[in-house]
Each structure stands twice: as structure tokens, then as C-alpha cells.
Design a binder for these strands. Structure first.
Lengths: 344, 344
DNA sequence: CGCGCGTGTGAATACGTATGCTGCGCGCTT
DNA sequence: AAGCGCGCAGCATACGTATTCACACGCGCG
């Protein structure tokens, strides 16, 4: 290739073809198209015209090989969808949109992968130079997740994660404490005095823990007790929310509100309350978290805490790119927002 | 690089490093790791052990450059999400899951992009060798879409599209006619005699057209008239469904059922019917199409026609890969399935 | 009038992998 | 005993781009 061979055998035009047509050398073509200032305006225009005409596009593989970066980010989702892939967590999908958009604006491609579905390590992406950096969403098993994240840090992989800041890696997330507090304050304002909480409150799911902490803050501020018997553990799945309310009812404790750590839980909770003959919001007020699309279609429409996915996705991408470019990056907490509908 | 230089300056191990440690040449390493039978079992084992130990991974860019294929598919979505990316068509998301899974199983990466968000042509993906083939989902403006698809055919790009077979490119889709017919038959069985249809019925959206055609078949088979006054055009957006029902009501025609070309339309229709004091399914039976997640959370839960997204995504990927491998590929029509809930 | 400098371009080469061809040694055929 | 085929591995090189270095030219200045 170093020799001025004419490699344009038959197919795709190369920079050599453009060079020949423009009467310049291949390096000049490369420089011109990358906007190098050492190429004269006249030459550049000529080269660009020819490139356009031949529909020439820089070969991504060759360019990546030479430059050592692939201009691609990888999005890894740590959660098990159903086998047919139908039941993807809505939050993921909401974030995907803004991530894609921001990537596109910044000139990066986006690879997507479900961690459980890839045969090999998640770190493969960076090892094989398939991506310049990683975006981590969700986490199935917290212990496993944490171990993997620490490994990423150890091998200096560039990545950002969405969630609650936990000291490991750069983290972007919404203010779950404030969100939980807002939900609690709203319920208290509405006159609720016994607010149940459904969701993890332990360290396994830092985000859920923070939402619970926010609720507890609101209760204390209002001078209300934080009753552990009003707390039921549940994973973020509709069915688990349903079962959690049944357990709560079985305890025989009175409650006039339920704050659910996620909308999926809230959907299940609403179903269970309906079946038990408790009207929402008449007998029991209900607040969720996430503002998934289905939240506005429930009956009654679900009051919930919205995370700013649009901004979240953009910040994830921008932060990661800054990190790839060598900057030090920091955790970021985005505001959450109470969406008042009819369930409280 | 041809010379036995030791390029392992500092960073990532290369096949030369493995070769040196294993006491063989670089080509032998390459062959061993690709499973070439001309490498003896003993040598291969040794090389694999060393590669594993050094956490060596084949450099994707170099490999792609040499082999001329990138082992990557690109998913292009032709539809405008809201600016913040929050409101992505649920059908897209449902399909994404199974596409990702199948890609992963077949050893392909997946690039995702919204056509409107990429500055350059959609064809860039193949031109720049960023992907070996394209998957096309959705289409905003049919004329524009069709022109682009024809261009893809002209330049021999390998691609598959989801939708109604229309003679251009390989198309995978669900049987929209059968789905529409099933919806119609169900409504007729339930005693409905004046079935309104909301959605495009023209050539602009072939899938919608087919759904309408299916409904018409069912009506004719039952000896019922196909009344054009019972048809209202609407794009697949909640708000448009809402407005369509209002227009329908304004016409003053009686109807005892509405078949919506999509669930999003049906959501809007349900809202409009509720506001107009028509109970569902008491006064008006309602059937949608798509079975989006929100469909089961409406009040009453929406009866709808489900497309097999799980199989659809898998077929899209497998068909595309076959095409990339040089096979001739054919259109495929997947069965649709009526999901009976409470709205009819 | 010679020297240096800035501007624009070409020559050579590196990036890491994959593969066609060559070569070597060994066992087996005739 | 000479030749032949086969199993295995090395040599050289191609893939297409980006960058470093060298160089030619023109111009101003001393």
C-alpha cells in the first residue's frame, strides 16, 4: 500500500483513488478530509468535491486501527429481560433514546448489549477495542455488579454508570433522596399519616435505599414515626409489588398510603389494592417512582416521581466522552420531579 | 510489523506477544485462535492458555480491516421520537430486545441509530464499513422512506426491513391482514354491527392498510357493509386517536365498536370515549393492535392484536446474516395473535 | 545575493491481523 | 532406496488510513 499502487480493483473507492483523481498524494487526501489546516483551501475543495462525487467514506476499520480509537461507546444493561426480550425495563428504554441522540450529536456510534446475553465478560468491549468507553445501566445482582465495576476501575477502563453515587467509578443519577422526600411530603400534605413503603431498603439497591431514606426524612420532619412494620421488601417487578401489598395487608396494620420504590411495583400494588377492595386514592393513596409510560394510563393515573432521563442520558454520554478525552470526571446528581396525577 | 519487531511497547498485548511467549510465529497465533485446523492441537492449547493469561483479545479494528467485514449490524429506526427521546414507539423497544439477543447469539454487535438524528445518510453505515448490513424499522414519511430503500437496493446494500411486504427489499412482518380480520371477527362475534376504523387506510402506511383490509374481509364475510363514513384517518399517536374519535362522534354516525390500527391510537380513543360518556366496552367495544405494555394497564384492559416481536426480531437478524453470507433471502409473514382482554 | 523561514505536499511507515505460498521433516509407497 | 504426500509452521504481504519526517518552493530580509 505504500507504493502508489492503484488498489481500486473494483469496489469501494479508497483515499488513493481520490488522490489519483485529484492529482495529489494519498496523505493529502487524508489531511484534507480531516480538516488539517496545512492543506490549502483550493486543494481541499477539490478533494472534497471528488470524494463527494465518488461517495467516498473513510473506512472505519482502517481509521480506527491507525488512530487507536473507535469512536464508539458501548451501552451495557445489567438486567435480565424475559427470554423473548419483550419485557425490558421501561427505564432503560427511556434512557436509550437520549443516549442515542447525544451519541449521534457527538459523532459516536453506540453498541448495545445485555450483559447476561453476552457469552464473555463485559470488559471484552474495551479489551477488544470495540468501544472507547462503557455506559453501565441497571444492576441485577448487586454483589456481582459491584465486583465487576471494581474490576473496571482496576484495569482503568473508561466508564460511567447510572445510579446512586457509591464511591466507585463516575456515577450519574437522579436525587433519589429528594425524590423520596417529595413523595413523602406530598402524601403528608394530603393528610396521610401511616405511609407504607414497598421496595428494598437495604444496601443491595442503593437507589431504593435512598428513596426510602427520603421518605423517612419527610416523616421525621413532620413529626411522624418511621414504623418498620410499614416497610415491605420487593424487587422492581409488577408481580412483586402485588405480593408485597398482600403481605402488608396480612400483617393487619392500618395504613393510608403506599410509597412504592418504582412504578412497576406500584402497578402491582394498585392491582392488589383493587382486589382487596381498597380504593385508590380513596382508602389508600399511592405514589410510585420513575414515571414510566404506563403510569399515565393506570386507573387512576399514577402519581409518581419522574427522573430526568433526557438529561440523564445526555450527561452519561458527555461525561464518558470527557473521560475518554482524558479529563477527570465527577459524580452528578440530577433533580427529580414529582408528577401529581390522581392516585394520591 | 512484518519484521519480528517486539511491538509490545507498553499497553495491550498483540498476537506478536503471544507468539513470542509461545515460541511460535504470529501467523500461527492468528490461526490457532481462529480455530484453523492446520495448527496442531498441542500448539493451539499452549497458545490459548497464554492468550487467556494475558487477557489477549483480537483487535477488532485490525481484524475487520484485514477480513473486510466488521461483524456488526446496524439498526436504523425511521421515526421521530420526541426531542428528549422519551417517547420512543413501544414497538421499537419490544423488538430491540430480541434483536439484541439474536445478534449476541450470532456473534454480531449491534449499532443503533435514529435516522433523523444522524447528520448524514443512513447509507453511511455501509459506506463507511461500520456495519455489514442494515435492519430498518418504522418509516416516518413513506415517500422518503421508499426512496431511500430503493437506493439501498440500487447500491446492493444488504438489508432487511420490518413491515408489510411491498416488493422492495427483503421484508419481515406480521400478517396484518389476518390480524385485522381476527379483530373484526372477534367484534362481530361479540355482536357488534357498526365497527369504526381509526388509522390510515391508504398506501402511505401499508401495514395500516392491510389491517383495514383484514377488517373489511371480516365484515364482508359476515355480510356486513363496509361503510367509509366509519373510517377516520389517524397517525399512530395517542393524541391523534383522541382527536379521531372526536371527529367520529361529530359525524353523528352510530357505531358500537372501534378497531384502532395501533394501541397508541386506541389509548387516545379510549380517553375520548370516556370523556364523551361512552363506556368501554358497554357502549363501544374497542380493539387495538400491537399489544404494547401499557395495553394491559388501561381501564378496562385493552383487547388487541399482538405481533410476535420475539420471533420477528430473531428472523430479522437471521435473515440479514444469511443475506450477508451470500444467500438469497425471501419475505416472511409471521402470524399475529388476538389477545382478548376486557375492552371488547 | 544568500540565507532562513513559512507554507504546502510527498515519501515512508506504523497500526494488528489474516492468509497464500513456501519449506521442512517424517512416514509410507513402489 | 528414492520419491511422494502430508502435517505443521514460518515468511511475506495486504488491508486503508494517519502521521512523522523530509523537501521544494517562494519570499523577505540582511
Amino acid at each position: 500500500m505504500a507504493r502508489p499502487t492503484r488498489p481500486s480493483a473494483g469496489d469501494r473507492p479508497t483515499s488513493f483513488d481520490i488522490a489519483e483523481l485529484a492529482g495529489v498524494s494519498q496523505p493529502t487526501v487524508s489531511r484534507a478530509l480531516r480538516g488539517d489546516k496545512t492543506v490549502s483551501e483550493r486543494t481541499r475543495m477539490r478533494i472534497e468535491a471528488i470524494a463527494q462525487q465518488l461517495n467516498y467514506k473513510v473506512d472505519r476499520a482502517a481509521s480506527s486501527l491507525r488512530r487507536g480509537e473507535v469512536k464508539t461507546l458501548a451501552l451495557l444493561f445489567f438486567e435480565d429481560p424475559l427470554p423473548d426480550g419483550s419485557n425490558i425495563n421501561p427505564f432503560f428504554l427511556a434512557m436509550l433514546g437520549s443516549i442515542l441522540k447525544t451519541c449521534s450529536q457527538r459523532g459516536y456510534d453506540l453498541l448495545t448489549s445485555f450483559q447476561r446475553w453476552s457469552a464473555d465478560w463485559h470488559v471484552d468491549y474495551e479489551d477488544a477495542r470495540r468501544a472507547d468507553g462503557l455506559i453501565l445501566l441497571g444492576y441485577g445482582d448487586w454483589e456481582d455488579y459491584r465486583a465487576r465495576v471494581e474490576q473496571l476501575v482496576a484495569q482503568r477502563t473508561r466508564f460511567v454508570r447510572w445510579g446512586a453515587p457509591s464511591g466507585v467509578g463516575t456515577t450519574i443519577g437522579c436525587d433519589n433522596v429528594a425524590g423520596g422526600r417529595a413523595a413523602g411530603e406530598h402524601l403528608i400534605e394530603r393528610g396521610c399519616r401511616s405511609i407504607a413503603y414497598i421496595g428494598e431498603a437495604s444496601h443491595h439497591y442503593p437507589e431504593f435505599r435512598d428513596r426510602y431514606a427520603g421518605l423517612a426524612q419527610a416523616l421525621r420532619t413532620a413529626g411522624l414515626p418511621v414504623d418498620p412494620r410499614l416497610h415491605v421488601d420487593a424487587l422492581s417487578v409488577e408481580q412483586k409489588g402485588y405480593e408485597a401489598v398482600q403481605r402488608l395487608l396480612a400483617r393487619g396494620i392500618t395504613f393510608d398510603a403506599v410509597f412504592c420504590a418504582s412504578d412497576l411495583i406500584a402497578l402491582g400494588a394498585m392491582r392488589a389494592l383493587n382486589e382487596a377492595g381498597r380504593s385508590v386514592p380513596g382508602d389508600v393513596a399511592l405514589v410510585g417512582f420513575d414515571d414510566i409510560p404506563a403510569a399515565s394510563h393506570t386507573h387512576p393515573p399514577l402519581t409518581t416521581v419522574a427522573q430526568d432521563y433526557g438529561r440523564g442520558g445526555a450527561e452519561l454520554v458527555d461525561t464518558l466522552i470527557r473521560q475518554i478525552e482524558g479529563e477527570a470526571t465527577h459524580d452528578l446528581l440530577l433533580p427529580s420531579r414529582l408528577v401529581v396525577r390522581a392516585s394520591a
